[in-house]
Design a protein around this nucleic acid. Structure first.
Lengths: 250, 250
DNA sequence: TTAAACTTGTGTCATTTCGACACAATATTA
DNA sequence: TAATATTGTGTCGAAATGACACAAGTTTAA
């Protein structure tokens, strides 16, 4: 916060913003990290603006670090939202004002296009951190029926759709799960993203056929019923396999 | 041209540009439509800026119409290029000046991020049309070894990579081929995009298994050797099949 | 005019993958 | 200690895949 810059066109490019859909996986459910605005009570995606000397990816990493404490996060641009009407009636402005941080209206009142990023993080490593305008930073289910800022609901839904399509091209399991995980966990992740159930035995056969997993000796104890084995990703093989795109469809 | 607007921040949003990689298929080769700058002799992608009241997609359609004569073109955003250095030393400025259209430097000298689109068109329907700053508008091979403006070479190469990945999710054949086409043509298109050869008989079996093609009675005459049958896409089935993504990989 | 060259149309066959399902093993719960 | 739920592993027929052969049609060369 020490070097918090003012949001104005000296420090940031006009008209351009970023919004990040940060996915995590917990209790066998896909989650999205969101902020809750103090006054207008709307939920918003972590987002921000582009400094005059940084790339969009750098800006996204900067924003993600502030909300999660993590660096080097896996992220991908997935769509630019450019409807001229989308940034009209931005309640965040009102909220900032009421929070005691009246924004530079010459910057804020302009039309914005926003570049949508999705990020994949290890849920257990994130320390959700609100910003100056929000009273909460918390994990939500992607289709939560709560009021959201501007078009953020559509942004989340588009991110999910992209995630589904890119399941075989991106290291989605690797980035969303902890280092050690069980086969049922991995399966639930796939099922959640795909939105349908998979046969347990066929799933295992197929995912093992990619040869991107190492089976560990250790079993996951403490849970209910029979203890499943832990697996970890074989980084080199995973990277290699993604090059071609994992064959077959789900 | 009648209502050609001046490029300045009254009419267009600062910092934001678009570049379109327009793909066509001709003589069994994939082509990209490019402009050739009159004075600096560099090739550039058709591009432009975002008007204050239009979406990026509308802007892209506007730009495409001017260069191809076509409307309702199939296009997709694929990536935003945001390196702060990318728009330094923009030779197009020099070129515009020498062409007798000195640009509004308050607009042009700023840093630009550019939204990359790819477009798929029926080669035979395009009327390549140069703009005020270029002396040629012509089809080139995507990896032509010619000087290109800024990072346009990288933009093309990224577009091709995206095209490859999206071959099973987008109506690529439908948009790139004429209404009637032969099986060898379709295969060549797939081979070109994938960058490798496919077995003629297996290709036919697989593509037919999707049931998105209608075989016509007519054969393509005039060519060399045995006359192949014409096919056309079954629009409804194709659209439906793309919803799920064509199963299997190539 | 005829044969050679080349492309297209169609089919076969062994192998691999896929979808549906059974059963034994193991840990917790009642 | 038995019932219950979950995990580990395997089987089977159907479907998809990769490699390849041969006949038929059209142009080209002799």
């Amino acid at each position: 916060m020490a070097e918090q810059l003012e949001f104005n066109s000296k420090n940031f490019l006009n008209h351009i913003s970023l919004d990040c859909v940060i996915f995590g996986f917990h209790n066998n459910e896909l989650k999205v990290l969101m902020l809750h605005l103090k006054h207008t009570k709307e939920y918003t995606l972590p987002g921000g603006f582009l400094k005059i000397d940084e790339t969009l990816e750098q800006a996204a990493q900067r924003i993600l670090k502030e909300r999660t404490g993590l660096g080097q996060i896996f992220l991908k641009q997935f769509k630019v939202f450019s409807d001229p009407e989308r940034s009209k009636d931005n309640k965040a402005i009102k909220d900032a004002t009421e929070s005691g941080f009246p924004p530079d209206m010459d910057f804020f009142s302009k039309r914005f296009i926003t570049i949508g990023f999705y990020a994949l993080v290890d849920f257990s490593k994130v320390k959700p951190t609100p910003d100056l305008f929000s009273d909460k930073c918390e994990w939500m289910t992607p289709n939560a029926e709560v009021p959201m800022l501007l078009d953020h609901k559509a942004i989340i839904s588009d991110a999910l759709a992209v995630l589904r399509v890119q399941l075989n091209q991106q290291p989605i399991g690797l980035k969303l799960l902890p280092k050690k995980f069980t086969m049922p966990q991995l399966q639930k992740l796939y099922e959640t993203i795909l939105g349908r159930e998979l046969d347990r035995r066929n799933f295992q056969r197929k995912i093992l056929s990619y040869k991107i997993l190492n089976k560990l000796e250790e079993r996951k104890t403490g849970g209910a019923y029979k203890a499943p084995f832990y697996y970890e990703f074989d980084l080199k093989r995973y990277q290699q396999a993604l090059q071609d795109g994992l064959k077959g469809s789900w």
